[in-house]
């Protein structure tokens, strides 16, 4: 899977958590929480979506690698097998 494909999937999962998401307005290097006003329940739903879509278990201690879109793509590129 290329980084672009990973990014598209991550945005798809974000859109399911934040229905009003405008992908074009999302800054890839800025905090998702700050940009999308997501809370801990939303963030957990996002991580559950990533885990299902990419077929990996994501440890709680790794959540800090998922705070921006760029960071998510890098983390998933390194860990995803699917």
């Amino acid at each position: 899977m290329t980084n672009e494909e990973i990014k598209a999937k991550v945005i798809g999962i974000l859109a399911s958590v934040v229905p009003e998401l405008e992908p074009a307005e999302l800054a890839a290097d800025k905090s998702l929480r700050d940009q999308l006003d997501i809370d801990s329940v939303d963030f957990l739903n996002f991580v559950v979506g990533l885990s299902k879509t990419f077929g990996i278990e994501i440890a709680e201690t790794d959540y800090r690698h998922l705070y921006t879109l760029d960071a998510c793509v890098a983390y998933l590129a390194a860990h995803a097998t699917a």
Partner: peptide
């Protein structure tokens, strides 16, 4: 939480 899959983890809240 370390023993639980993502979907079953608890939030501090």
């Amino acid at each position: 939480n370390a023993k639980l899959p993502v979907a079953e983890r608890l939030l501090a809240g």
